[in-house]
Design a protein around this nucleic acid. Sequence first.
DNA 1: CCCAACCTACCTTCTGATAGGGAGGGCGTC
DNA 2: GACGCCCTCCCTATCAGAAGGTAGGTTGGG
Lengths: 196, 196
Amino acid sequence: MSNLSTTAEDILAVARTLIINGGYNGFSYADISEVVGIRKASIHHHFPSKVDLVRELVKRYREDGQAGVAALEQNVPNALDILKVYSTHWSKCIEDASRPYCVCALLASELPSLPPEVAAEVTAFFRFISSWLGSVMERGSKEGTLTLSSEPDVEAEAFLATVYGAMLSARAYGSPKVFGTILAPTLSRLTPNAAH
Amino acid sequence: MSNLSTTAEDILAVARTLIINGGYNGFSYADISEVVGIRKASIHHHFPSKVDLVRELVKRYREDGQAGVAALEQNVPNALDILKVYSTHWSKCIEDASRPYCVCALLASELPSLPPEVAAEVTAFFRFISSWLGSVMERGSKEGTLTLSSEPDVEAEAFLATVYGAMLSARAYGSPKVFGTILAPTLSRLTPNAAH
DNA sequence: CCCAACCTACCTTCTGATAGGGAGGGCGTC
DNA sequence: GACGCCCTCCCTATCAGAAGGTAGGTTGGG
Protein backbone atom coordinates (compact mmCIF):
# COMPACT_ATOMS: atom_id res chain seq x y z
CA MET A 1 0.00 0.00 0.00
CA SER A 2 2.31 2.77 -1.14
CA ASN A 3 0.72 6.16 -0.43
CA LEU A 4 0.45 8.01 -3.72
CA SER A 5 -1.10 11.39 -4.45
CA THR A 6 -4.70 11.64 -5.49
CA THR A 7 -3.65 12.40 -9.05
CA ALA A 8 -1.60 9.23 -9.21
CA GLU A 9 -4.61 7.28 -7.97
CA ASP A 10 -6.75 8.94 -10.63
CA ILE A 11 -4.25 8.02 -13.31
CA LEU A 12 -4.25 4.40 -12.17
CA ALA A 13 -8.04 4.28 -12.07
CA VAL A 14 -8.37 5.69 -15.57
CA ALA A 15 -5.65 3.40 -16.88
CA ARG A 16 -7.47 0.42 -15.42
CA THR A 17 -10.66 1.35 -17.23
CA LEU A 18 -8.77 1.84 -20.47
CA ILE A 19 -6.98 -1.50 -20.15
CA ILE A 20 -10.28 -3.24 -19.46
CA ASN A 21 -11.49 -1.73 -22.72
CA GLY A 22 -8.63 -2.56 -25.02
CA GLY A 23 -5.59 -4.00 -23.28
CA TYR A 24 -2.02 -2.83 -22.93
CA ASN A 25 -1.60 -1.56 -26.47
CA GLY A 26 -5.13 -0.23 -26.58
CA PHE A 27 -4.48 2.96 -24.63
CA SER A 28 -1.95 5.77 -24.51
CA TYR A 29 -0.75 8.48 -22.16
CA ALA A 30 -2.78 10.90 -24.29
CA ASP A 31 -5.95 8.93 -23.54
CA ILE A 32 -5.28 9.12 -19.81
CA SER A 33 -4.47 12.84 -19.91
CA GLU A 34 -7.79 13.65 -21.57
CA VAL A 35 -9.81 11.97 -18.84
CA VAL A 36 -7.72 12.99 -15.84
CA GLY A 37 -7.40 16.58 -17.05
CA ILE A 38 -3.67 16.70 -16.88
CA ARG A 39 -1.01 17.16 -19.56
CA LYS A 40 0.52 14.09 -21.12
CA ALA A 41 3.99 14.94 -19.85
CA SER A 42 2.74 15.32 -16.29
CA ILE A 43 1.81 11.66 -16.16
CA HIS A 44 5.50 10.86 -16.56
CA HIS A 45 6.09 12.69 -13.28
CA HIS A 46 4.00 10.06 -11.49
CA PHE A 47 4.90 7.09 -13.66
CA PRO A 48 8.13 7.56 -15.61
CA SER A 49 7.24 4.94 -18.18
CA LYS A 50 4.18 3.03 -19.32
CA VAL A 51 5.72 -0.13 -17.95
CA ASP A 52 6.00 1.49 -14.51
CA LEU A 53 2.37 2.52 -14.66
CA VAL A 54 0.95 -0.85 -15.64
CA ARG A 55 3.29 -2.77 -13.36
CA GLU A 56 2.11 -0.70 -10.41
CA LEU A 57 -1.48 -1.05 -11.58
CA VAL A 58 -1.35 -4.83 -11.69
CA LYS A 59 0.58 -5.01 -8.44
CA ARG A 60 -2.14 -2.99 -6.69
CA TYR A 61 -4.83 -5.01 -8.42
CA ARG A 62 -3.33 -8.14 -6.91
CA GLU A 63 -2.91 -6.56 -3.49
CA ASP A 64 -6.50 -5.33 -3.52
CA GLY A 65 -7.56 -8.81 -4.51
CA GLN A 66 -5.61 -10.32 -1.66
CA ALA A 67 -7.18 -7.88 0.80
CA GLY A 68 -10.64 -8.58 -0.57
CA VAL A 69 -10.10 -12.30 -0.32
CA ALA A 70 -8.85 -11.99 3.25
CA ALA A 71 -11.97 -10.04 4.22
CA LEU A 72 -14.15 -12.57 2.44
CA GLU A 73 -12.57 -15.46 4.32
CA GLN A 74 -13.24 -13.68 7.60
CA ASN A 75 -16.83 -12.71 6.93
CA VAL A 76 -18.05 -15.76 5.06
CA PRO A 77 -17.32 -19.10 6.73
CA ASN A 78 -19.02 -21.40 4.22
CA ALA A 79 -16.79 -22.38 1.28
CA LEU A 80 -19.68 -22.64 -1.15
CA ASP A 81 -20.85 -19.19 -0.13
CA ILE A 82 -17.38 -17.85 -0.80
CA LEU A 83 -17.51 -19.14 -4.34
CA LYS A 84 -20.97 -17.67 -4.74
CA VAL A 85 -19.86 -14.26 -3.48
CA TYR A 86 -16.86 -14.40 -5.78
CA SER A 87 -18.92 -15.17 -8.86
CA THR A 88 -21.59 -12.65 -7.85
CA HIS A 89 -18.88 -10.02 -7.59
CA TRP A 90 -18.03 -10.52 -11.25
CA SER A 91 -21.64 -10.88 -12.21
CA LYS A 92 -22.36 -7.42 -10.80
CA CYS A 93 -19.28 -5.83 -12.35
CA ILE A 94 -20.31 -7.12 -15.74
CA GLU A 95 -23.96 -6.20 -15.41
CA ASP A 96 -23.54 -2.63 -14.23
CA ALA A 97 -20.67 -2.21 -16.70
CA SER A 98 -18.48 -0.72 -13.97
CA ARG A 99 -15.61 -3.17 -14.49
CA PRO A 100 -16.97 -5.55 -17.09
CA TYR A 101 -13.72 -7.49 -17.39
CA CYS A 102 -10.75 -8.53 -15.32
CA VAL A 103 -7.64 -6.45 -16.00
CA CYS A 104 -5.43 -9.49 -15.62
CA ALA A 105 -7.58 -11.62 -17.92
CA LEU A 106 -7.06 -9.12 -20.70
CA LEU A 107 -3.37 -8.75 -20.00
CA ALA A 108 -2.93 -12.50 -19.73
CA SER A 109 -4.32 -12.99 -23.21
CA GLU A 110 -1.71 -10.53 -24.48
CA LEU A 111 1.03 -12.08 -22.34
CA PRO A 112 3.53 -13.01 -25.08
CA SER A 113 3.71 -9.42 -26.29
CA LEU A 114 3.78 -7.80 -22.86
CA PRO A 115 6.88 -6.20 -21.31
CA PRO A 116 8.45 -8.83 -19.01
CA GLU A 117 7.94 -6.75 -15.86
CA VAL A 118 4.22 -6.49 -16.50
CA ALA A 119 3.96 -10.13 -17.56
CA ALA A 120 5.53 -11.21 -14.28
CA GLU A 121 2.91 -9.30 -12.27
CA VAL A 122 0.11 -10.81 -14.31
CA THR A 123 1.25 -14.39 -13.81
CA ALA A 124 1.69 -13.64 -10.11
CA PHE A 125 -1.97 -12.61 -9.98
CA PHE A 126 -3.09 -15.86 -11.52
CA ARG A 127 -0.94 -17.90 -9.18
CA PHE A 128 -2.51 -16.06 -6.26
CA ILE A 129 -6.11 -16.52 -7.37
CA SER A 130 -5.49 -20.12 -8.28
CA SER A 131 -3.89 -21.09 -4.98
CA TRP A 132 -6.60 -19.26 -3.05
CA LEU A 133 -9.37 -21.09 -4.92
CA GLY A 134 -7.46 -24.32 -4.32
CA SER A 135 -7.49 -23.70 -0.57
CA VAL A 136 -11.20 -22.90 -0.66
CA MET A 137 -11.91 -26.10 -2.55
CA GLU A 138 -9.86 -28.19 -0.16
CA ARG A 139 -11.43 -26.70 2.93
CA GLY A 140 -14.93 -26.99 1.52
CA SER A 141 -14.33 -30.60 0.65
CA LYS A 142 -13.09 -31.46 4.14
CA GLU A 143 -15.91 -29.57 5.82
CA GLY A 144 -18.52 -31.05 3.53
CA THR A 145 -19.66 -27.65 2.27
CA LEU A 146 -18.46 -28.45 -1.24
CA THR A 147 -18.89 -31.55 -3.32
CA LEU A 148 -15.83 -32.11 -5.51
CA SER A 149 -15.54 -34.60 -8.33
CA SER A 150 -11.78 -34.07 -8.77
CA GLU A 151 -8.77 -33.05 -6.73
CA PRO A 152 -9.15 -29.62 -5.09
CA ASP A 153 -6.43 -28.07 -7.27
CA VAL A 154 -8.00 -29.37 -10.46
CA GLU A 155 -11.42 -28.24 -9.32
CA ALA A 156 -9.99 -24.79 -8.58
CA GLU A 157 -8.45 -24.48 -12.04
CA ALA A 158 -11.68 -25.64 -13.66
CA PHE A 159 -13.70 -23.13 -11.66
CA LEU A 160 -11.33 -20.30 -12.50
CA ALA A 161 -11.42 -21.23 -16.17
CA THR A 162 -15.23 -21.25 -16.11
CA VAL A 163 -15.37 -17.81 -14.49
CA TYR A 164 -12.93 -16.27 -16.94
CA GLY A 165 -14.43 -18.09 -19.90
CA ALA A 166 -17.88 -16.86 -18.88
CA MET A 167 -16.47 -13.34 -18.65
CA LEU A 168 -15.23 -13.63 -22.22
CA SER A 169 -18.53 -15.02 -23.45
CA ALA A 170 -20.48 -12.19 -21.83
CA ARG A 171 -18.24 -9.74 -23.67
CA ALA A 172 -18.35 -11.65 -26.96
CA TYR A 173 -22.15 -11.84 -27.02
CA GLY A 174 -22.57 -8.40 -25.54
CA SER A 175 -25.02 -9.82 -23.01
CA PRO A 176 -24.11 -9.75 -19.30
CA LYS A 177 -26.68 -12.41 -18.41
CA VAL A 178 -24.57 -15.12 -20.04
CA PHE A 179 -22.15 -14.96 -17.12
CA GLY A 180 -24.77 -15.97 -14.60
CA THR A 181 -26.21 -18.58 -16.92
CA ILE A 182 -22.85 -20.30 -17.18
CA LEU A 183 -21.94 -20.02 -13.51
CA ALA A 184 -25.25 -21.33 -12.17
CA PRO A 185 -24.78 -24.99 -13.15
CA THR A 186 -21.14 -24.87 -12.09
CA LEU A 187 -22.11 -23.70 -8.62
CA SER A 188 -24.98 -26.14 -8.29
CA ARG A 189 -22.63 -28.97 -9.20
CA LEU A 190 -20.42 -27.99 -6.27
CA THR A 191 -23.41 -27.81 -3.92
CA PRO A 192 -23.77 -30.79 -1.56
CA ASN A 193 -26.98 -32.86 -1.73
CA ALA A 194 -27.87 -31.37 -5.08
CA ALA A 195 -29.67 -33.77 -7.39
CA HIS A 196 -28.15 -33.94 -10.82
CA MET B 1 -13.59 -19.00 -50.40
CA SER B 2 -12.31 -16.05 -52.38
CA ASN B 3 -9.19 -17.01 -54.33
CA LEU B 4 -6.39 -14.69 -53.28
CA SER B 5 -2.78 -14.69 -54.39
CA THR B 6 -0.18 -16.61 -52.44
CA THR B 7 1.20 -13.37 -51.06
CA ALA B 8 -2.19 -12.38 -49.70
CA GLU B 9 -2.45 -15.79 -48.06
CA ASP B 10 0.99 -15.32 -46.54
CA ILE B 11 0.02 -11.93 -45.20
CA LEU B 12 -3.09 -13.36 -43.58
CA ALA B 13 -1.14 -16.24 -42.08
CA VAL B 14 1.48 -13.95 -40.57
CA ALA B 15 -1.16 -11.54 -39.33
CA ARG B 16 -2.93 -14.41 -37.62
CA THR B 17 0.21 -15.40 -35.77
CA LEU B 18 0.83 -11.81 -34.74
CA ILE B 19 -2.73 -11.35 -33.49
CA ILE B 20 -2.47 -14.56 -31.49
CA ASN B 21 0.60 -13.04 -29.88
CA GLY B 22 -0.65 -9.60 -28.99
CA GLY B 23 -4.07 -8.78 -30.41
CA TYR B 24 -5.30 -6.14 -32.82
CA ASN B 25 -3.17 -3.27 -31.53
CA GLY B 26 -0.21 -5.54 -30.90
CA PHE B 27 0.99 -5.72 -34.49
CA SER B 28 1.63 -3.40 -37.42
CA TYR B 29 2.04 -3.51 -41.17
CA ALA B 30 5.76 -3.18 -40.55
CA ASP B 31 5.75 -6.40 -38.51
CA ILE B 32 4.03 -8.26 -41.31
CA SER B 33 6.34 -6.89 -43.99
CA GLU B 34 9.42 -8.11 -42.13
CA VAL B 35 8.20 -11.70 -42.00
CA VAL B 36 6.58 -11.90 -45.43
CA GLY B 37 9.53 -10.19 -47.12
CA ILE B 38 7.52 -7.50 -48.81
CA ARG B 39 7.48 -3.73 -48.40
CA LYS B 40 5.03 -2.19 -45.99
CA ALA B 41 3.26 -0.28 -48.75
CA SER B 42 2.78 -3.42 -50.82
CA ILE B 43 0.54 -4.90 -48.14
CA HIS B 44 -1.90 -2.09 -48.82
CA HIS B 45 -2.22 -3.41 -52.37
CA HIS B 46 -3.72 -6.63 -51.01
CA PHE B 47 -5.52 -5.14 -48.01
CA PRO B 48 -6.17 -1.40 -48.35
CA SER B 49 -6.57 -0.90 -44.62
CA LYS B 50 -5.84 -2.78 -41.42
CA VAL B 51 -9.57 -3.17 -40.87
CA ASP B 52 -9.89 -4.87 -44.27
CA LEU B 53 -7.09 -7.23 -43.38
CA VAL B 54 -8.39 -8.31 -40.01
CA ARG B 55 -11.99 -8.43 -41.15
CA GLU B 56 -11.01 -10.82 -43.96
CA LEU B 57 -8.83 -12.76 -41.54
CA VAL B 58 -11.63 -13.35 -39.06
CA LYS B 59 -14.12 -14.06 -41.83
CA ARG B 60 -11.85 -16.81 -43.17
CA TYR B 61 -11.17 -18.05 -39.68
CA ARG B 62 -14.88 -18.54 -39.23
CA GLU B 63 -15.33 -20.13 -42.64
CA ASP B 64 -12.45 -22.53 -42.00
CA GLY B 65 -14.03 -23.35 -38.66
CA GLN B 66 -17.35 -24.05 -40.31
CA ALA B 67 -15.68 -26.31 -42.86
CA GLY B 68 -13.75 -28.12 -40.15
CA VAL B 69 -16.88 -28.61 -38.11
CA ALA B 70 -18.77 -29.95 -41.12
CA ALA B 71 -16.00 -32.48 -41.77
CA LEU B 72 -15.97 -33.43 -38.10
CA GLU B 73 -19.70 -34.06 -38.08
CA GLN B 74 -19.34 -36.33 -41.10
CA ASN B 75 -16.39 -38.35 -39.84
CA VAL B 76 -17.22 -38.62 -36.17
CA PRO B 77 -20.74 -39.82 -35.37
CA ASN B 78 -20.51 -39.90 -31.58
CA ALA B 79 -21.28 -36.54 -29.93
CA LEU B 80 -18.91 -37.14 -27.01
CA ASP B 81 -16.13 -37.99 -29.46
CA ILE B 82 -16.79 -34.75 -31.28
CA LEU B 83 -16.25 -32.78 -28.10
CA LYS B 84 -13.11 -34.79 -27.41
CA VAL B 85 -11.73 -34.14 -30.88
CA TYR B 86 -12.56 -30.46 -30.51
CA SER B 87 -10.76 -30.12 -27.19
CA THR B 88 -7.85 -32.25 -28.40
CA HIS B 89 -7.49 -29.90 -31.35
CA TRP B 90 -6.86 -27.00 -29.00
CA SER B 91 -4.77 -29.11 -26.69
CA LYS B 92 -2.40 -29.89 -29.57
CA CYS B 93 -2.30 -26.31 -30.83
CA ILE B 94 -1.32 -25.11 -27.38
CA GLU B 95 1.22 -27.83 -26.73
CA ASP B 96 3.14 -27.59 -29.99
CA ALA B 97 2.87 -23.80 -29.80
CA SER B 98 1.67 -23.66 -33.41
CA ARG B 99 -1.49 -21.70 -32.62
CA PRO B 100 -1.48 -21.47 -28.85
CA TYR B 101 -4.55 -19.27 -28.71
CA CYS B 102 -7.77 -18.62 -30.56
CA VAL B 103 -7.67 -15.50 -32.71
CA CYS B 104 -11.26 -14.71 -31.85
CA ALA B 105 -10.74 -15.20 -28.13
CA LEU B 106 -8.08 -12.53 -28.14
CA LEU B 107 -10.10 -10.20 -30.32
CA ALA B 108 -13.22 -10.79 -28.23
CA SER B 109 -11.43 -9.66 -25.11
CA GLU B 110 -10.53 -6.44 -26.93
CA LEU B 111 -14.03 -6.12 -28.40
CA PRO B 112 -14.99 -2.68 -27.02
CA SER B 113 -11.97 -1.06 -28.63
CA LEU B 114 -12.17 -2.90 -31.93
CA PRO B 115 -13.32 -1.32 -35.22
CA PRO B 116 -17.03 -2.18 -35.62
CA GLU B 117 -16.48 -4.18 -38.82
CA VAL B 118 -13.98 -6.44 -37.08
CA ALA B 119 -16.09 -6.67 -33.94
CA ALA B 120 -19.05 -7.86 -35.98
CA GLU B 121 -17.02 -10.71 -37.50
CA VAL B 122 -15.77 -11.74 -34.07
CA THR B 123 -19.24 -11.93 -32.53
CA ALA B 124 -20.40 -13.85 -35.60
CA PHE B 125 -17.69 -16.42 -34.89
CA PHE B 126 -18.86 -16.89 -31.33
CA ARG B 127 -22.47 -17.22 -32.38
CA PHE B 128 -21.44 -19.91 -34.85
CA ILE B 129 -19.34 -21.94 -32.38
CA SER B 130 -21.98 -21.58 -29.70
CA SER B 131 -24.88 -22.74 -31.85
CA TRP B 132 -22.81 -25.61 -33.21
CA LEU B 133 -21.91 -26.81 -29.71
CA GLY B 134 -25.57 -26.43 -28.77
CA SER B 135 -26.60 -28.76 -31.57
CA VAL B 136 -23.94 -31.27 -30.58
CA MET B 137 -25.15 -31.20 -26.98
CA GLU B 138 -28.77 -31.64 -27.99
CA ARG B 139 -28.04 -34.53 -30.34
CA GLY B 140 -25.78 -36.22 -27.81
CA SER B 141 -28.43 -35.92 -25.16
CA LYS B 142 -31.13 -37.45 -27.38
CA GLU B 143 -28.86 -40.24 -28.57
CA GLY B 144 -27.59 -40.97 -25.09
CA THR B 145 -23.96 -40.32 -26.02
CA LEU B 146 -23.83 -37.32 -23.69
CA THR B 147 -25.05 -36.88 -20.14
CA LEU B 148 -26.26 -33.34 -19.59
CA SER B 149 -27.12 -31.77 -16.27
CA SER B 150 -28.61 -28.62 -17.82
CA GLU B 151 -30.30 -27.52 -21.01
CA PRO B 152 -28.24 -28.20 -24.16
CA ASP B 153 -27.71 -24.48 -24.83
CA VAL B 154 -26.54 -23.82 -21.30
CA GLU B 155 -24.30 -26.85 -21.40
CA ALA B 156 -22.85 -25.61 -24.68
CA GLU B 157 -22.07 -22.18 -23.26
CA ALA B 158 -20.51 -23.73 -20.17
CA PHE B 159 -18.37 -26.03 -22.28
CA LEU B 160 -17.24 -23.19 -24.52
CA ALA B 161 -16.40 -21.05 -21.49
CA THR B 162 -14.36 -23.89 -20.01
CA VAL B 163 -12.40 -24.39 -23.23
CA TYR B 164 -11.61 -20.69 -23.62
CA GLY B 165 -10.96 -20.24 -19.92
CA ALA B 166 -8.57 -23.19 -19.99
CA MET B 167 -6.85 -21.62 -22.99
CA LEU B 168 -6.31 -18.45 -20.99
CA SER B 169 -5.04 -20.35 -17.97
CA ALA B 170 -2.53 -22.28 -20.08
CA ARG B 171 -1.22 -18.96 -21.37
CA ALA B 172 -1.25 -17.29 -17.95
CA TYR B 173 0.70 -20.07 -16.28
CA GLY B 174 2.87 -20.68 -19.31
CA SER B 175 2.16 -24.40 -19.05
CA PRO B 176 0.24 -26.11 -21.85
CA LYS B 177 -0.67 -29.11 -19.69
CA VAL B 178 -3.16 -27.03 -17.72
CA PHE B 179 -5.55 -27.10 -20.66
CA GLY B 180 -5.85 -30.87 -20.60
CA THR B 181 -6.07 -30.92 -16.83
CA ILE B 182 -9.08 -28.62 -16.88
CA LEU B 183 -10.82 -30.27 -19.81
CA ALA B 184 -10.51 -33.84 -18.50
CA PRO B 185 -13.07 -33.57 -15.67
CA THR B 186 -15.40 -31.56 -17.90
CA LEU B 187 -15.39 -34.29 -20.52
CA SER B 188 -15.75 -37.10 -18.00
CA ARG B 189 -18.76 -35.34 -16.53
CA LEU B 190 -20.41 -35.41 -19.94
CA THR B 191 -19.58 -39.09 -20.38
CA PRO B 192 -22.54 -41.45 -19.86
CA ASN B 193 -22.25 -44.10 -17.10
CA ALA B 194 -19.32 -42.27 -15.55
CA ALA B 195 -19.18 -42.54 -11.80
CA HIS B 196 -18.85 -39.22 -10.09
C1' DC C 1 14.60 27.60 0.24
C1' DC C 2 13.19 23.31 -1.38
C1' DC C 3 10.50 20.11 -3.56
C1' DA C 4 6.45 18.07 -5.45
C1' DA C 5 3.30 18.90 -9.13
C1' DC C 6 2.35 20.58 -13.29
C1' DC C 7 3.25 23.14 -17.38
C1' DT C 8 5.08 24.21 -22.52
C1' DA C 9 7.88 22.78 -26.03
C1' DC C 10 10.17 19.48 -28.36
C1' DC C 11 12.19 14.98 -29.98
C1' DT C 12 12.31 10.34 -32.09
C1' DT C 13 10.16 6.58 -33.70
C1' DC C 14 6.37 4.17 -35.27
C1' DT C 15 1.74 4.11 -37.23
C1' DG C 16 -1.48 3.38 -41.10
C1' DA C 17 -1.89 5.26 -45.41
C1' DT C 18 -1.13 7.60 -50.22
C1' DA C 19 1.09 8.88 -54.72
C1' DG C 20 3.32 7.52 -58.43
C1' DG C 21 6.37 4.67 -61.00
C1' DG C 22 8.54 0.26 -62.98
C1' DA C 23 8.69 -4.68 -64.29
C1' DG C 24 6.36 -8.37 -66.32
C1' DG C 25 2.64 -11.42 -67.83
C1' DG C 26 -1.61 -12.01 -70.71
C1' DC C 27 -4.27 -10.77 -74.67
C1' DG C 28 -6.27 -9.01 -78.68
C1' DT C 29 -5.24 -6.80 -83.27
C1' DC C 30 -2.75 -6.04 -87.25
C1' DG D 1 5.13 -13.04 -84.88
C1' DA D 2 5.20 -8.18 -83.42
C1' DC D 3 3.05 -4.40 -81.46
C1' DG D 4 0.59 -1.93 -78.17
C1' DC D 5 -2.33 -2.13 -74.10
C1' DC D 6 -3.72 -3.15 -69.62
C1' DC D 7 -3.55 -5.11 -65.29
C1' DT D 8 -1.31 -7.19 -61.26
C1' DC D 9 2.26 -6.87 -58.13
C1' DC D 10 5.66 -4.64 -55.98
C1' DC D 11 8.71 -0.79 -55.40
C1' DT D 12 10.50 4.10 -53.50
C1' DA D 13 9.29 8.22 -51.44
C1' DT D 14 6.52 10.67 -48.58
C1' DC D 15 2.89 11.98 -45.45
C1' DA D 16 0.24 13.39 -41.09
C1' DG D 17 -0.62 11.99 -36.84
C1' DA D 18 0.11 9.44 -32.67
C1' DA D 19 3.24 6.97 -29.77
C1' DG D 20 6.32 7.18 -25.48
C1' DG D 21 9.51 10.09 -23.60
C1' DT D 22 12.78 14.26 -22.34
C1' DA D 23 14.30 19.06 -21.13
C1' DG D 24 13.58 22.81 -18.73
C1' DG D 25 10.71 26.27 -16.69
C1' DT D 26 6.75 27.94 -13.34
C1' DT D 27 4.00 27.69 -9.30
C1' DG D 28 2.82 27.14 -4.66
C1' DG D 29 2.78 25.06 -0.11
C1' DG D 30 5.71 23.41 4.04
